[in-house]
Each structure stands twice: as structure tokens, then as C-alpha cells.
């Protein structure tokens, strides 16, 4: 199958999923709470009949449920996710403001997680049942067992407060001025502006949260890498590869790892969901001004429309990441190309 046809097929498959997500978010937002007005407007706004009437009109609350859904979709297509009770801003504006910080943290987090996860998983599979396997498995067990917020607190207390090895909460020291905004990601913007000291400072603030987030997903990635490698290492064609005198490194990397990548790439895509969940908990502890912290604040202040807006966004990102994973299969699995 040619690449463009394959991509087109995957994209077509995603559309009903996206529609379904909006339907679920709609049902949770408008059908579950006893009174959507009560859930979506602040106390003060509720006492003003004009605001209540305007809200009813905007979301079509006096119409039937299917008609309300159409209004909801129409609003969504215009980027209208509603208005936050707490910040009183449009949720779409809030998201645009807080998103770059999360993208930056998530990117570093996934780099740490994938590197650590694949390395420990490979080590455990290749040197199975040795002390190296035991150590690697312990790291992955900690990654999947210790709550990410506890890991964050311990890391912050030991590495920052006690040892002073890493920077504290926030994206920059208080004395620093953020670099001129281009992408909103401080490390990139600082490099673009040639501000070396801002770059190193931003990086020192990223170390701890991205380690915590990375360790959280490394556990899952490491486990899948190990089992997927073990499965491949037991195959006959590996014995053949060794028998014909290939170096062990070639056997492991070219013959085994390449065939073990599909489940690994799948789990990296799926662990993006954990990454987004983890971001809520990590950002709340590191005072990281991103979407996760926004979601945390929304949840502690019962800011219902903001919670629903971010949920929809996260589900959308998750589906898109897994669409990319599907497309990657095309390059990883020759069977798809030839079918």
C-alpha cells in the first residue's frame, strides 16, 4: 500500500473517534451534572439573570439534547470551549497561554523516559537474571509503583532543598527575565535570542520535573521493551544470525531490536496518556505554569468548564499521538507496506 493511501486510511479512522470524544465530553458536561448552569457559572454570575440567559443561548440549553450537541460542536469548531469560572477568560485563551510550558516539559520528559526505559529494558533482556537485570527491573518497578507526586516531593526535598543540586520550582529563577517569546518554550527561545545564561537556568529548572515525569513512563516502557526483546531473542533466526558468525552487537541491535520495536513504539504512544496524567500531578508540585497545573487548579476550585476543556484537549492530543504511532508502523513493519 502506498504511504499516502495508508495515511489517508488512518486519518479517516480517527474522525469517528474524535466525534465520539466530543460526544462523551458533551454528555459528561451537559447531561451528568444535575444542573449545568450551576456547574458552569460562578455564584455571582448565577445571580444575574442576564448572564444566565446568555449562557443558555450560547449553549442552546433550552433546546433538546441532540440540538444542544450540534450547538456544542459548532462552538468547538470555532475554538470555543467555554469560559473558565476561575480565570473568567476563554478556556481556549488559557490553553494557548499555558500550553508551551507543558509541551516543553513533556518533550524533555518523554526524552528521559524513552532513553531510560529502552536502555533498562534492553539491559534486562540481554543480561537476563543477572544483577543488572535485577537493578533495571527494580528501577522500572519504582517507576510504576511510586506515585509520581511522591517521587516529585522526594526529589524536590532531597536534590533541591537538602543537596542544592537542582533548581527549585518554577521555570526560571526569580531574578531571571524570560526570553522574548517565539515558541513559548524557554530553552528554545533563549537559544534563539542567544541568552546562554537564561538557557542554562531554564534547563536546570527542567531537570527535576522531567526526571520525575520520565521515570514515571520509563517503568512502563522498560517492561514492554524487556518482554518484547525476550520474545525476539528466543527466535530461531537469531540463532541463525549468531551461527553465521555475526558480532553479538549486530545480532542484538540489527536483528533483535528492530523486530522488537513495534510493541515498544506502541507503548510509547500509549504512555503519552500517562505523561499527560503525570503532567497534572508533576506540574502542580513544581509550580510549573502549564496546562497540568491549570487542570489541577481547576479541579481544586471546582472549575467545571475548565476541567472539561482540558479533558477534551488531552484526549485529542492522545488520539493524535496514537495516529502518529499508527503511521510509524508503516516504516517499522514491512508487512504493512507490502499488503
Amino acid at each position: 500500500m502506498p504511504l499516502h493511501l495508508y495515511i489517508l486510511r488512518r486519518v479517516v479512522f480517527v474522525i469517528p473517534v474524535l466525534l465520539g470524544i466530543t460526544l462523551m465530553a458533551f454528555l459528561i458536561a451537559n447531561a451528568v451534572p444535575a444542573d449545568p448552569i450551576n456547574a458552569n457559572l460562578s455564584q455571582r454570575a448565577m445571580s444575574d439573570p442576564e448572564i444566565v440567559a446568555a449562557f443558555r443561548r450560547e449553549w442552546g440549553l433550552d433546546k433538546t439534547l441532540p440540538e444542544q450537541y450540534v450547538t456544542y460542536i459548532a462552538n468547538l469548531l470555532q475554538g470555543n470551549l467555554g469560559r473558565s469560572i476561575k480565570s473568567r477568560q476563554l478556556i481556549s485563551d488559557d490553553i494557548a497561554r499555558f500550553m508551551p510550558a507543558t509541551i516543553e516539559l513533556a518533550t524533555y520528559g518523554i526524552l528521559v523516559g524513552v532513553t531510560l526505559g529502552i536502555t533498562t529494558g534492553m539491559i534486562s533482556a540481554i543480561w537476563r537474571n543477572t544483577w543488572m537485570d535485577a537493578t533495571a527491573r527494580t528501577i522500572s518497578l519504582i517507576g510504576v509503583s511510586v506515585p509520581v507526586f511522591v517521587l516529585a516531593l522526594i526529589g524536590l526535598y532531597v536534590l533541591h532543598v537538602k543537596l542544592g543540586l537542582t533548581a527549585g520550582p518554577g521555570r526560571l529563577d526569580f531574578t531571571m527575565t524570560p526570553p522574548p517569546t517565539v515558541t513559548g518554550m524557554y530553552t528554545i527561545d533563549a537559544l534563539l535570542a542567544g541568552q546562554w545564561n537564561v538557557f542554562t537556568n531554564a534547563l536546570s529548572h527542567l531537570v527535576l520535573p522531567s526526571l520525575v515525569l520520565g521515570l514515571f513512563i520509563a517503568g512502563i516502557i522498560s517492561r514492554v521493551t524487556r518482554s518484547s526483546m525476550l520474545e525476539v531473542l528466543g527466535m530461531d533466526y537469531l540463532r541463525t544470525a549468531r551461527a553465521k558468525g555475526l558480532a553479538e552487537r549486530t545480532v542484538v541491535i540489527r536483528h533483535a531490536f528492530r523486530n522488537a520495536t513495534i510493541p515498544i513504539v506502541t507503548v510509547i504512544g500509549l504512555s503519552y496518556g500517562s505523561l499527560l496524567s503525570g503532567a497534572v500531578l508533576t506540574e502542580s508540585i513544581f509550580a510549573w505554569p502549564g496546562i497540568g497545573r491549570y487542570m489541577y487548579r481547576a479541579s481544586t476550585s471546582q472549575d467545571f468548564p475548565a476541567i472539561m476543556g482540558v479533558s477534551l484537549l488531552f484526549a485529542f492530543i492522545f488520539v493524535m499521538v496514537n495516529l502518529v504511532v499508527d503511521i510509524l508502523y508503516y516504516f517499522l513493519d514491512p508487512r504493512i507496506r507490502q499488503s
Binding site: 465520539g20 462523551m24 465530553a25 496524567s277 497534572v280 476541567i307 492522545f318 488520539v319
Partner: peptide
Amino acid sequence: ELFMAFPTIILAMAVTAAL
């Protein structure tokens, strides 16, 4: 599949917030 499209804690947060 729709339920699985939402990251775990996020969907749980939305449902608890609604209830």
C-alpha cells in the same frame, strides 16, 4: 475505544468533577 481515548486520571477527574 472512546473511553480509552481519554488519559486515565483526566477522564476520572472529569467524571468526579461532574458528580
